[in-house]
Write a protein that binds this DNA or RNA. Sequence first.
DNA 1: CGAATAGTGTCTATAAGACATTATACT
DNA 2: AGTATAATGTCTTATAGACACTATTCG
Lengths: 250, 250
Amino acid sequence: MSDEDWRPPAVLLAVDLVILTLRSSRLHVLLVERGIEPHRGEQALPGGFLNNAGEDIAAAAERELREEADLDASHLHLEQLGTYGAPDRDPRGRVVSVAYLAIAPRLPRPLAGTDAAAAAWRPVEDVDTGRPKLAFDHERILADGLERARSKLEHSSLATAFCDETFTISELQQVYEAVWGVRLDQRNFYRKVQAVKGFILPAGTSRRTTGGRPARLFRAGPRTDLHPPLVRAEPPHEGPSTPDRRPARR
Amino acid sequence: MSDEDWRPPAVLLAVDLVILTLRSSRLHVLLVERGIEPHRGEQALPGGFLNNAGEDIAAAAERELREEADLDASHLHLEQLGTYGAPDRDPRGRVVSVAYLAIAPRLPRPLAGTDAAAAAWRPVEDVDTGRPKLAFDHERILADGLERARSKLEHSSLATAFCDETFTISELQQVYEAVWGVRLDQRNFYRKVQAVKGFILPAGTSRRTTGGRPARLFRAGPRTDLHPPLVRAEPPHEGPSTPDRRPARR
DNA sequence: CGAATAGTGTCTATAAGACATTATACT
DNA sequence: AGTATAATGTCTTATAGACACTATTCG
Protein backbone atom coordinates (compact mmCIF):
# COMPACT_ATOMS: atom_id res chain seq x y z
CA MET A 1 0.00 0.00 0.00
CA SER A 2 3.01 2.22 0.25
CA ASP A 3 4.93 1.36 -2.89
CA GLU A 4 4.10 3.88 -5.51
CA ASP A 5 5.82 1.90 -8.20
CA TRP A 6 4.43 -1.45 -7.26
CA ARG A 7 3.17 -3.40 -10.24
CA PRO A 8 0.68 -6.23 -10.00
CA PRO A 9 2.08 -9.66 -10.85
CA ALA A 10 1.17 -11.26 -14.14
CA VAL A 11 -0.18 -14.76 -14.53
CA LEU A 12 -0.71 -17.13 -17.41
CA LEU A 13 -4.32 -17.73 -18.26
CA ALA A 14 -5.57 -21.08 -19.45
CA VAL A 15 -8.96 -22.58 -20.15
CA ASP A 16 -9.92 -26.15 -19.42
CA LEU A 17 -13.01 -27.91 -20.65
CA VAL A 18 -15.29 -30.44 -19.04
CA ILE A 19 -17.13 -31.78 -22.07
CA LEU A 20 -19.92 -34.18 -21.26
CA THR A 21 -22.04 -36.29 -23.53
CA LEU A 22 -24.09 -39.45 -23.54
CA ARG A 23 -22.90 -42.56 -25.29
CA SER A 24 -24.92 -45.74 -25.12
CA SER A 25 -26.88 -44.33 -22.21
CA ARG A 26 -23.82 -43.62 -20.13
CA LEU A 27 -22.28 -40.30 -19.25
CA HIS A 28 -18.90 -39.71 -20.85
CA VAL A 29 -16.28 -37.02 -20.55
CA LEU A 30 -13.74 -36.10 -23.17
CA LEU A 31 -10.14 -36.65 -22.09
CA VAL A 32 -6.91 -36.11 -23.97
CA GLU A 33 -3.51 -37.58 -23.50
CA ARG A 34 -1.05 -34.83 -22.79
CA GLY A 35 1.60 -34.53 -25.47
CA ILE A 36 3.94 -32.20 -23.64
CA GLU A 37 5.34 -31.74 -20.18
CA PRO A 38 4.28 -31.37 -17.49
CA HIS A 39 2.31 -34.55 -16.98
CA ARG A 40 3.22 -35.76 -20.46
CA GLY A 41 1.37 -38.94 -21.32
CA GLU A 42 -1.21 -38.52 -18.57
CA GLN A 43 -4.92 -38.08 -19.11
CA ALA A 44 -6.23 -34.55 -18.78
CA LEU A 45 -9.12 -32.33 -19.65
CA PRO A 46 -8.76 -30.60 -22.99
CA GLY A 47 -7.60 -27.04 -22.68
CA GLY A 48 -4.86 -24.59 -23.32
CA PHE A 49 -3.55 -21.10 -22.91
CA LEU A 50 -5.02 -17.95 -24.26
CA ASN A 51 -3.85 -17.42 -27.79
CA ASN A 52 -2.98 -13.78 -27.37
CA ALA A 53 -3.61 -10.99 -24.94
CA GLY A 54 -6.68 -9.86 -26.84
CA GLU A 55 -8.56 -13.13 -26.92
CA ASP A 56 -11.74 -13.30 -24.91
CA ILE A 57 -11.83 -16.11 -22.39
CA ALA A 58 -15.05 -17.62 -23.67
CA ALA A 59 -13.67 -17.37 -27.18
CA ALA A 60 -10.62 -19.29 -26.06
CA ALA A 61 -12.89 -21.97 -24.67
CA GLU A 62 -14.71 -22.20 -27.99
CA ARG A 63 -11.43 -22.38 -29.84
CA GLU A 64 -10.18 -25.23 -27.68
CA LEU A 65 -13.49 -26.95 -28.22
CA ARG A 66 -12.82 -26.77 -31.93
CA GLU A 67 -9.15 -27.59 -31.84
CA GLU A 68 -9.13 -30.34 -29.29
CA ALA A 69 -12.57 -31.85 -29.64
CA ASP A 70 -13.58 -30.89 -33.18
CA LEU A 71 -16.82 -29.53 -31.77
CA ASP A 72 -18.67 -26.48 -32.99
CA ALA A 73 -19.42 -24.24 -30.05
CA SER A 74 -22.49 -22.78 -31.72
CA HIS A 75 -24.30 -26.08 -31.31
CA LEU A 76 -23.29 -26.68 -27.73
CA HIS A 77 -24.20 -25.58 -24.30
CA LEU A 78 -21.16 -23.83 -22.85
CA GLU A 79 -20.97 -22.18 -19.48
CA GLN A 80 -18.25 -21.04 -17.17
CA LEU A 81 -17.64 -23.46 -14.36
CA GLY A 82 -15.06 -21.83 -12.13
CA THR A 83 -11.51 -20.66 -11.89
CA TYR A 84 -8.67 -22.68 -10.47
CA GLY A 85 -5.54 -20.86 -9.51
CA ALA A 86 -3.69 -22.52 -6.66
CA PRO A 87 -0.14 -21.20 -6.83
CA ASP A 88 1.38 -24.66 -7.21
CA ARG A 89 -1.07 -26.23 -9.59
CA ASP A 90 1.29 -25.98 -12.57
CA PRO A 91 5.07 -26.38 -12.32
CA ARG A 92 5.58 -24.01 -15.24
CA GLY A 93 4.67 -21.03 -13.12
CA ARG A 94 1.57 -19.20 -12.06
CA VAL A 95 -1.12 -20.58 -14.28
CA VAL A 96 -4.72 -19.71 -13.63
CA SER A 97 -7.27 -21.80 -15.42
CA VAL A 98 -10.83 -20.85 -16.17
CA ALA A 99 -12.83 -24.03 -16.50
CA TYR A 100 -15.86 -24.33 -18.74
CA LEU A 101 -18.59 -26.91 -18.80
CA ALA A 102 -19.77 -28.02 -22.23
CA ILE A 103 -22.66 -30.34 -22.96
CA ALA A 104 -22.73 -32.10 -26.30
CA PRO A 105 -25.50 -34.16 -27.87
CA ARG A 106 -24.75 -37.68 -28.99
CA LEU A 107 -22.08 -37.44 -31.60
CA PRO A 108 -21.73 -39.86 -34.44
CA ARG A 109 -18.72 -37.75 -35.30
CA PRO A 110 -15.39 -39.34 -34.66
CA LEU A 111 -12.87 -37.17 -32.90
CA ALA A 112 -10.73 -35.78 -35.64
CA GLY A 113 -9.07 -32.75 -34.11
CA THR A 114 -5.47 -32.38 -35.11
CA ASP A 115 -4.32 -31.64 -31.60
CA ALA A 116 -6.45 -34.40 -30.30
CA ALA A 117 -5.22 -37.59 -31.80
CA ALA A 118 -5.33 -38.93 -28.30
CA ALA A 119 -8.74 -37.52 -27.43
CA ALA A 120 -11.31 -40.05 -26.35
CA TRP A 121 -14.63 -40.26 -24.60
CA ARG A 122 -14.31 -41.91 -21.23
CA PRO A 123 -17.18 -43.16 -19.08
CA VAL A 124 -17.45 -40.82 -16.14
CA GLU A 125 -17.82 -43.65 -13.69
CA ASP A 126 -14.40 -44.93 -14.70
CA VAL A 127 -12.82 -41.60 -13.90
CA ASP A 128 -14.88 -41.30 -10.76
CA THR A 129 -13.40 -44.52 -9.49
CA GLY A 130 -9.91 -43.29 -10.29
CA ARG A 131 -9.28 -45.48 -13.31
CA PRO A 132 -7.37 -42.89 -15.27
CA LYS A 133 -5.79 -40.44 -12.88
CA LEU A 134 -6.02 -36.95 -14.26
CA ALA A 135 -3.23 -34.40 -14.50
CA PHE A 136 -3.06 -31.16 -12.52
CA ASP A 137 -6.19 -30.51 -10.48
CA HIS A 138 -8.40 -31.82 -13.23
CA GLU A 139 -10.11 -34.37 -11.04
CA ARG A 140 -11.37 -31.56 -8.89
CA ILE A 141 -12.49 -29.61 -11.94
CA LEU A 142 -14.27 -32.64 -13.34
CA ALA A 143 -15.98 -33.30 -10.04
CA ASP A 144 -17.18 -29.72 -9.92
CA GLY A 145 -18.41 -29.96 -13.48
CA LEU A 146 -20.34 -33.11 -12.73
CA GLU A 147 -21.91 -31.59 -9.69
CA ARG A 148 -22.86 -28.52 -11.70
CA ALA A 149 -24.49 -30.64 -14.37
CA ARG A 150 -26.32 -32.80 -11.86
CA SER A 151 -27.57 -29.78 -10.02
CA LYS A 152 -28.63 -27.86 -13.10
CA LEU A 153 -30.68 -30.78 -14.34
CA GLU A 154 -32.98 -30.13 -11.44
CA HIS A 155 -33.75 -26.49 -12.02
CA SER A 156 -32.95 -25.82 -15.64
CA SER A 157 -33.56 -27.25 -19.05
CA LEU A 158 -29.92 -28.29 -19.35
CA ALA A 159 -30.91 -31.88 -20.04
CA THR A 160 -32.06 -30.95 -23.52
CA ALA A 161 -28.49 -29.94 -24.34
CA PHE A 162 -27.59 -33.62 -24.22
CA CYS A 163 -30.18 -34.33 -26.90
CA ASP A 164 -30.42 -33.64 -30.59
CA GLU A 165 -32.71 -30.91 -31.81
CA THR A 166 -35.63 -33.27 -31.56
CA PHE A 167 -35.81 -36.06 -29.07
CA THR A 168 -38.18 -38.44 -27.40
CA ILE A 169 -39.21 -38.33 -23.80
CA SER A 170 -37.47 -41.57 -23.09
CA GLU A 171 -34.26 -40.17 -24.52
CA LEU A 172 -34.64 -37.24 -22.17
CA GLN A 173 -35.21 -39.66 -19.32
CA GLN A 174 -32.01 -41.46 -20.20
CA VAL A 175 -30.18 -38.17 -19.76
CA TYR A 176 -31.48 -37.78 -16.25
CA GLU A 177 -30.76 -41.38 -15.40
CA ALA A 178 -27.23 -41.27 -16.76
CA VAL A 179 -26.24 -37.96 -15.22
CA TRP A 180 -27.83 -38.61 -11.86
CA GLY A 181 -26.92 -42.27 -11.88
CA VAL A 182 -30.39 -43.38 -10.86
CA ARG A 183 -33.36 -45.16 -12.35
CA LEU A 184 -36.52 -43.15 -12.75
CA ASP A 185 -40.10 -44.31 -13.10
CA GLN A 186 -41.15 -43.86 -16.69
CA ARG A 187 -44.74 -42.89 -15.96
CA ASN A 188 -43.91 -40.32 -13.33
CA PHE A 189 -41.20 -38.88 -15.53
CA TYR A 190 -43.60 -38.42 -18.45
CA ARG A 191 -46.09 -36.72 -16.21
CA LYS A 192 -43.55 -34.41 -14.64
CA VAL A 193 -41.72 -33.17 -17.70
CA GLN A 194 -44.98 -32.54 -19.50
CA ALA A 195 -46.30 -30.60 -16.55
CA VAL A 196 -43.46 -28.08 -16.75
CA LYS A 197 -44.80 -25.56 -19.22
CA GLY A 198 -42.28 -24.47 -21.81
CA PHE A 199 -39.77 -27.22 -21.06
CA ILE A 200 -40.42 -29.43 -24.06
CA LEU A 201 -42.68 -28.78 -27.01
CA PRO A 202 -44.17 -31.27 -29.46
CA ALA A 203 -42.11 -31.30 -32.65
CA GLY A 204 -44.53 -31.84 -35.48
CA THR A 205 -46.12 -35.22 -35.92
CA SER A 206 -42.82 -36.82 -36.74
CA ARG A 207 -41.84 -40.07 -35.24
CA ARG A 208 -38.87 -42.31 -35.10
CA THR A 209 -38.90 -46.01 -34.81
CA THR A 210 -36.58 -48.58 -33.36
CA GLY A 211 -38.62 -51.73 -33.52
CA GLY A 212 -41.41 -50.80 -31.15
CA ARG A 213 -44.16 -48.26 -31.06
CA PRO A 214 -42.91 -45.01 -32.59
CA ALA A 215 -42.14 -42.27 -30.10
CA ARG A 216 -43.40 -38.75 -30.46
CA LEU A 217 -40.75 -36.14 -30.93
CA PHE A 218 -40.22 -33.02 -28.89
CA ARG A 219 -37.91 -30.05 -29.03
CA ALA A 220 -36.57 -27.84 -26.28
CA GLY A 221 -39.00 -25.14 -25.25
CA PRO A 222 -38.28 -21.55 -24.31
CA ARG A 223 -38.25 -22.12 -20.57
CA THR A 224 -34.76 -22.40 -19.11
CA ASP A 225 -35.79 -22.45 -15.44
CA LEU A 226 -38.02 -25.31 -14.53
CA HIS A 227 -41.05 -24.75 -12.36
CA PRO A 228 -41.64 -26.94 -10.62
CA PRO A 229 -38.11 -28.33 -10.54
CA LEU A 230 -37.37 -32.00 -11.07
CA VAL A 231 -35.82 -32.74 -7.74
CA ARG A 232 -33.43 -35.56 -7.12
CA ALA A 233 -34.30 -37.99 -4.41
CA GLU A 234 -32.88 -37.40 -0.96
CA PRO A 235 -29.12 -37.15 -0.93
CA PRO A 236 -26.69 -39.85 -1.72
CA HIS A 237 -25.31 -36.44 -2.48
CA GLU A 238 -22.48 -34.98 -0.50
CA GLY A 239 -21.60 -31.46 -1.41
CA PRO A 240 -19.38 -30.47 -4.30
CA SER A 241 -15.72 -30.04 -3.72
CA THR A 242 -15.97 -26.31 -4.25
CA PRO A 243 -13.63 -24.30 -2.10
CA ASP A 244 -16.60 -22.52 -0.58
CA ARG A 245 -15.90 -21.56 2.95
CA ARG A 246 -18.40 -21.94 5.67
CA PRO A 247 -18.25 -19.23 8.25
CA ALA A 248 -16.37 -20.30 11.33
CA ARG A 249 -18.76 -19.93 14.19
CA ARG A 250 -17.25 -18.77 17.34
CA MET B 1 0.49 -24.98 -32.98
CA SER B 2 3.42 -24.54 -35.24
CA ASP B 3 5.49 -22.01 -33.33
CA GLU B 4 7.92 -23.85 -31.15
CA ASP B 5 8.91 -20.71 -29.28
CA TRP B 6 5.42 -19.33 -28.86
CA ARG B 7 4.75 -18.08 -25.34
CA PRO B 8 1.33 -17.68 -23.84
CA PRO B 9 0.32 -14.09 -23.09
CA ALA B 10 0.27 -12.87 -19.52
CA VAL B 11 -2.65 -11.14 -17.88
CA LEU B 12 -3.15 -9.20 -14.67
CA LEU B 13 -5.30 -10.99 -12.14
CA ALA B 14 -7.68 -9.13 -9.88
CA VAL B 15 -10.34 -10.12 -7.41
CA ASP B 16 -13.62 -8.30 -6.91
CA LEU B 17 -16.02 -8.80 -4.07
CA VAL B 18 -19.78 -8.79 -3.91
CA ILE B 19 -20.33 -8.43 -0.19
CA LEU B 20 -23.94 -8.70 0.88
CA THR B 21 -25.52 -8.11 4.23
CA LEU B 22 -28.83 -7.17 5.78
CA ARG B 23 -29.36 -3.78 7.32
CA SER B 24 -32.75 -2.81 8.72
CA SER B 25 -34.31 -5.70 6.85
CA ARG B 26 -32.99 -4.60 3.50
CA LEU B 27 -30.31 -6.18 1.40
CA HIS B 28 -27.16 -4.07 1.09
CA VAL B 29 -23.99 -4.36 -0.90
CA LEU B 30 -20.65 -2.83 0.01
CA LEU B 31 -19.40 -0.29 -2.49
CA VAL B 32 -16.27 1.82 -2.47
CA GLU B 33 -15.43 5.03 -4.19
CA ARG B 34 -12.50 4.51 -6.48
CA GLY B 35 -9.48 6.52 -5.45
CA ILE B 36 -7.42 6.04 -8.58
CA GLU B 37 -7.91 5.98 -12.30
CA PRO B 38 -9.53 4.49 -14.17
CA HIS B 39 -13.04 5.41 -13.09
CA ARG B 40 -11.68 7.55 -10.29
CA GLY B 41 -14.47 8.81 -8.10
CA GLU B 42 -16.99 6.30 -9.33
CA GLN B 43 -18.63 3.63 -7.22
CA ALA B 44 -17.26 0.13 -7.57
CA LEU B 45 -17.10 -3.23 -5.91
CA PRO B 46 -14.18 -3.60 -3.52
CA GLY B 47 -11.31 -5.50 -5.01
CA GLY B 48 -7.75 -5.33 -6.21
CA PHE B 49 -4.89 -7.10 -7.84
CA LEU B 50 -3.06 -10.11 -6.59
CA ASN B 51 -0.36 -9.05 -4.20
CA ASN B 52 2.33 -11.23 -5.67
CA ALA B 53 2.65 -14.13 -7.99
CA GLY B 54 2.46 -16.60 -5.15
CA GLU B 55 -0.74 -15.42 -3.59
CA ASP B 56 -3.67 -17.79 -3.78
CA ILE B 57 -6.76 -16.28 -5.37
CA ALA B 58 -9.06 -17.05 -2.47
CA ALA B 59 -6.42 -15.63 -0.14
CA ALA B 60 -6.41 -12.45 -2.16
CA ALA B 61 -10.17 -12.26 -1.79
CA GLU B 62 -9.82 -12.65 1.97
CA ARG B 63 -7.14 -9.99 2.05
CA GLU B 64 -9.29 -7.52 0.16
CA LEU B 65 -12.14 -8.35 2.49
CA ARG B 66 -9.89 -7.31 5.33
CA GLU B 67 -8.30 -4.31 3.71
CA GLU B 68 -11.28 -2.79 2.02
CA ALA B 69 -14.13 -3.88 4.20
CA ASP B 70 -12.47 -4.53 7.54
CA LEU B 71 -14.15 -7.92 7.59
CA ASP B 72 -12.66 -11.11 8.96
CA ALA B 73 -12.98 -13.79 6.35
CA SER B 74 -13.07 -16.55 8.93
CA HIS B 75 -16.53 -15.41 10.03
CA LEU B 76 -17.97 -15.06 6.59
CA HIS B 77 -19.37 -17.17 3.86
CA LEU B 78 -17.13 -16.73 0.85
CA GLU B 79 -17.50 -18.46 -2.48
CA GLN B 80 -16.22 -17.95 -5.95
CA LEU B 81 -18.75 -16.32 -8.20
CA GLY B 82 -17.19 -16.23 -11.64
CA THR B 83 -14.44 -14.79 -13.72
CA TYR B 84 -14.76 -11.74 -15.90
CA GLY B 85 -12.17 -11.19 -18.53
CA ALA B 86 -13.50 -9.30 -21.51
CA PRO B 87 -10.44 -7.89 -23.29
CA ASP B 88 -11.66 -4.30 -23.02
CA ARG B 89 -13.00 -4.33 -19.52
CA ASP B 90 -10.08 -2.37 -18.08
CA PRO B 91 -8.22 0.36 -19.98
CA ARG B 92 -4.99 -0.46 -18.18
CA GLY B 93 -4.57 -3.66 -20.15
CA ARG B 94 -5.66 -7.23 -19.97
CA VAL B 95 -7.14 -7.57 -16.52
CA VAL B 96 -9.01 -10.71 -15.59
CA SER B 97 -11.04 -10.50 -12.44
CA VAL B 98 -12.17 -13.40 -10.31
CA ALA B 99 -15.30 -12.32 -8.49
CA TYR B 100 -16.23 -13.66 -5.07
CA LEU B 101 -19.51 -13.57 -3.25
CA ALA B 102 -19.34 -12.87 0.46
CA ILE B 103 -22.24 -12.96 2.88
CA ALA B 104 -21.89 -11.08 6.14
CA PRO B 105 -24.14 -11.08 9.18
CA ARG B 106 -25.49 -7.81 10.45
CA LEU B 107 -22.52 -5.75 11.43
CA PRO B 108 -22.53 -3.23 14.21
CA ARG B 109 -18.97 -2.60 13.09
CA PRO B 110 -18.33 0.65 11.31
CA LEU B 111 -16.28 0.40 8.18
CA ALA B 112 -12.80 1.35 9.25
CA GLY B 113 -10.54 -0.01 6.57
CA THR B 114 -7.78 2.35 5.64
CA ASP B 115 -8.23 1.82 1.95
CA ALA B 116 -11.90 2.10 2.38
CA ALA B 117 -12.57 5.54 3.72
CA ALA B 118 -15.18 5.77 1.03
CA ALA B 119 -16.66 2.31 1.61
CA ALA B 120 -20.35 2.25 2.38
CA TRP B 121 -23.26 -0.13 2.46
CA ARG B 122 -25.74 0.66 -0.28
CA PRO B 123 -29.25 -0.76 -0.58
CA VAL B 124 -29.24 -3.20 -3.43
CA GLU B 125 -32.45 -1.86 -4.84
CA ASP B 126 -30.80 1.52 -5.32
CA VAL B 127 -28.03 0.00 -7.37
CA ASP B 128 -30.53 -2.18 -9.18
CA THR B 129 -32.36 0.88 -10.36
CA GLY B 130 -29.12 2.42 -11.52
CA ARG B 131 -28.80 5.01 -8.78
CA PRO B 132 -25.05 4.78 -8.48
CA LYS B 133 -23.63 3.57 -11.74
CA LEU B 134 -20.81 1.14 -11.13
CA ALA B 135 -17.37 1.17 -12.70
CA PHE B 136 -16.06 -1.46 -15.11
CA ASP B 137 -18.43 -4.39 -15.54
CA HIS B 138 -19.32 -4.37 -11.87
CA GLU B 139 -23.03 -4.07 -12.48
CA ARG B 140 -22.94 -7.37 -14.27
CA ILE B 141 -20.88 -8.93 -11.50
CA LEU B 142 -23.28 -7.61 -8.89
CA ALA B 143 -26.25 -8.91 -10.84
CA ASP B 144 -24.64 -12.33 -11.05
CA GLY B 145 -23.88 -12.26 -7.35
CA LEU B 146 -27.45 -11.38 -6.49
CA GLU B 147 -28.81 -14.12 -8.69
CA ARG B 148 -26.41 -16.58 -7.11
CA ALA B 149 -27.51 -15.60 -3.64
CA ARG B 150 -31.20 -15.72 -4.56
CA SER B 151 -30.80 -19.09 -6.14
CA LYS B 152 -28.75 -20.60 -3.35
CA LEU B 153 -31.28 -19.58 -0.76
CA GLU B 154 -33.60 -22.11 -2.32
CA HIS B 155 -31.55 -25.24 -1.96
CA SER B 156 -28.77 -24.41 0.43
CA SER B 157 -28.44 -23.13 3.94
CA LEU B 158 -26.85 -19.90 2.72
CA ALA B 159 -29.49 -17.83 4.47
CA THR B 160 -27.93 -18.59 7.84
CA ALA B 161 -24.77 -16.82 6.70
CA PHE B 162 -26.72 -13.57 6.88
CA CYS B 163 -27.49 -14.25 10.55
CA ASP B 164 -25.48 -14.20 13.72
CA GLU B 165 -24.43 -17.41 15.33
CA THR B 166 -27.85 -17.71 16.87
CA PHE B 167 -30.95 -16.29 15.34
CA THR B 168 -34.69 -16.46 15.47
CA ILE B 169 -36.90 -17.92 12.81
CA SER B 170 -38.36 -14.55 12.00
CA GLU B 171 -34.85 -13.18 11.48
CA LEU B 172 -34.24 -16.00 9.06
CA GLN B 173 -37.49 -15.18 7.35
CA GLN B 174 -36.37 -11.58 6.95
CA VAL B 175 -33.32 -12.83 5.10
CA TYR B 176 -35.46 -14.67 2.59
CA GLU B 177 -37.80 -11.74 2.22
CA ALA B 178 -35.03 -9.22 1.72
CA VAL B 179 -32.97 -11.28 -0.70
CA TRP B 180 -35.90 -12.51 -2.74
CA GLY B 181 -37.79 -9.25 -2.45
CA VAL B 182 -41.02 -10.93 -1.51
CA ARG B 183 -43.27 -11.33 1.52
CA LEU B 184 -43.62 -14.80 2.93
CA ASP B 185 -46.33 -16.26 5.10
CA GLN B 186 -44.96 -16.57 8.59
CA ARG B 187 -46.79 -19.79 9.46
CA ASN B 188 -45.82 -21.61 6.30
CA PHE B 189 -42.25 -20.44 6.69
CA TYR B 190 -42.05 -21.78 10.24
CA ARG B 191 -43.43 -25.09 9.11
CA LYS B 192 -41.11 -25.43 6.14
CA VAL B 193 -37.79 -24.51 7.73
CA GLN B 194 -38.48 -26.78 10.66
CA ALA B 195 -39.33 -29.62 8.31
CA VAL B 196 -35.89 -29.55 6.71
CA LYS B 197 -33.83 -31.81 8.90
CA GLY B 198 -30.47 -30.40 9.85
CA PHE B 199 -31.14 -26.89 8.56
CA ILE B 200 -31.61 -25.14 11.89
CA LEU B 201 -31.15 -26.53 15.37
CA PRO B 202 -32.58 -25.21 18.63
CA ALA B 203 -29.91 -23.22 20.48
CA GLY B 204 -30.45 -23.89 24.14
CA THR B 205 -33.44 -22.40 25.83
CA SER B 206 -32.15 -18.92 25.37
CA ARG B 207 -34.40 -16.19 24.26
CA ARG B 208 -34.13 -12.62 23.19
CA THR B 209 -36.72 -9.98 23.68
CA THR B 210 -37.71 -6.86 21.85
CA GLY B 211 -40.94 -5.91 23.44
CA GLY B 212 -43.02 -8.93 22.53
CA ARG B 213 -43.03 -12.59 23.30
CA PRO B 214 -39.43 -13.83 23.43
CA ALA B 215 -38.32 -15.76 20.40
CA ARG B 216 -36.60 -19.12 20.52
CA LEU B 217 -33.06 -19.15 19.25
CA PHE B 218 -31.62 -21.46 16.65
CA ARG B 219 -28.24 -22.07 15.14
CA ALA B 220 -27.25 -23.30 11.72
CA GLY B 221 -27.37 -27.07 11.42
CA PRO B 222 -24.97 -29.34 9.60
CA ARG B 223 -27.06 -29.65 6.46
CA THR B 224 -25.89 -27.43 3.61
CA ASP B 225 -28.24 -28.78 0.94
CA LEU B 226 -31.87 -28.38 1.77
CA HIS B 227 -34.26 -31.25 1.18
CA PRO B 228 -36.89 -30.39 0.38
CA PRO B 229 -35.78 -27.05 -1.05
CA LEU B 230 -37.52 -23.79 -0.24
CA VAL B 231 -38.68 -22.89 -3.68
CA ARG B 232 -39.42 -19.36 -4.78
CA ALA B 233 -42.86 -18.79 -6.17
CA GLU B 234 -43.20 -19.25 -9.87
CA PRO B 235 -41.90 -16.26 -11.77
CA PRO B 236 -44.65 -14.28 -13.46
CA HIS B 237 -45.87 -15.98 -16.58
CA GLU B 238 -45.76 -14.03 -19.75
CA GLY B 239 -49.14 -13.66 -21.31
CA PRO B 240 -52.54 -14.66 -19.97
CA SER B 241 -52.64 -18.09 -18.45
CA THR B 242 -53.23 -20.49 -21.28
CA PRO B 243 -55.51 -23.43 -20.67
CA ASP B 244 -53.64 -26.68 -20.60
CA ARG B 245 -51.92 -27.26 -23.88
CA ARG B 246 -51.31 -30.93 -23.82
CA PRO B 247 -50.37 -32.55 -27.08
CA ALA B 248 -53.48 -33.33 -29.09
CA ARG B 249 -54.73 -36.81 -28.44
CA ARG B 250 -56.15 -38.48 -31.44
C1' DC C 1 -54.52 -3.61 30.10
C1' DG C 2 -52.87 -2.69 25.64
C1' DA C 3 -49.16 -3.23 22.40
C1' DA C 4 -45.92 -5.96 20.23
C1' DT C 5 -43.96 -10.02 18.59
C1' DA C 6 -43.82 -15.34 18.69
C1' DG C 7 -45.83 -19.38 17.82
C1' DT C 8 -49.31 -22.77 16.22
C1' DG C 9 -53.45 -25.80 13.42
C1' DT C 10 -56.45 -26.90 9.60
C1' DC C 11 -58.11 -27.13 5.21
C1' DT C 12 -57.45 -27.45 0.26
C1' DA C 13 -54.80 -27.94 -3.91
C1' DT C 14 -50.96 -29.51 -6.09
C1' DA C 15 -47.05 -32.60 -6.67
C1' DA C 16 -44.59 -36.94 -5.70
C1' DG C 17 -44.18 -41.81 -5.65
C1' DA C 18 -45.78 -46.38 -6.39
C1' DC C 19 -47.90 -49.37 -9.52
C1' DA C 20 -49.88 -52.44 -14.57
C1' DT C 21 -51.96 -52.25 -18.68
C1' DT C 22 -52.88 -50.89 -23.36
C1' DA C 23 -51.08 -49.07 -27.96
C1' DT C 24 -48.39 -49.31 -32.07
C1' DA C 25 -45.01 -50.74 -34.78
C1' DC C 26 -41.65 -54.26 -36.32
C1' DT C 27 -40.08 -59.24 -37.43
C1' DA D 1 -48.33 -64.13 -33.36
C1' DG D 2 -44.60 -62.62 -30.78
C1' DT D 3 -41.62 -59.01 -29.39
C1' DA D 4 -40.20 -54.52 -28.38
C1' DT D 5 -40.93 -49.92 -27.10
C1' DA D 6 -44.27 -45.92 -26.12
C1' DA D 7 -47.81 -44.09 -23.73
C1' DT D 8 -51.22 -43.55 -20.17
C1' DG D 9 -54.43 -43.56 -15.33
C1' DT D 10 -55.24 -44.05 -10.40
C1' DC D 11 -54.38 -44.30 -5.79
C1' DT D 12 -51.86 -42.81 -1.76
C1' DT D 13 -48.92 -39.72 0.62
C1' DA D 14 -46.39 -35.43 1.10
C1' DT D 15 -45.79 -30.72 0.47
C1' DA D 16 -47.45 -25.92 -0.76
C1' DG D 17 -50.41 -22.19 -0.02
C1' DA D 18 -54.09 -19.77 2.16
C1' DC D 19 -55.91 -18.44 6.37
C1' DA D 20 -56.85 -16.55 12.15
C1' DC D 21 -56.12 -17.22 16.56
C1' DT D 22 -53.55 -17.95 21.05
C1' DA D 23 -49.20 -17.16 23.89
C1' DT D 24 -45.83 -14.43 26.21
C1' DT D 25 -43.50 -10.54 27.43
C1' DC D 26 -43.08 -5.38 28.11
C1' DG D 27 -44.42 -0.77 29.41
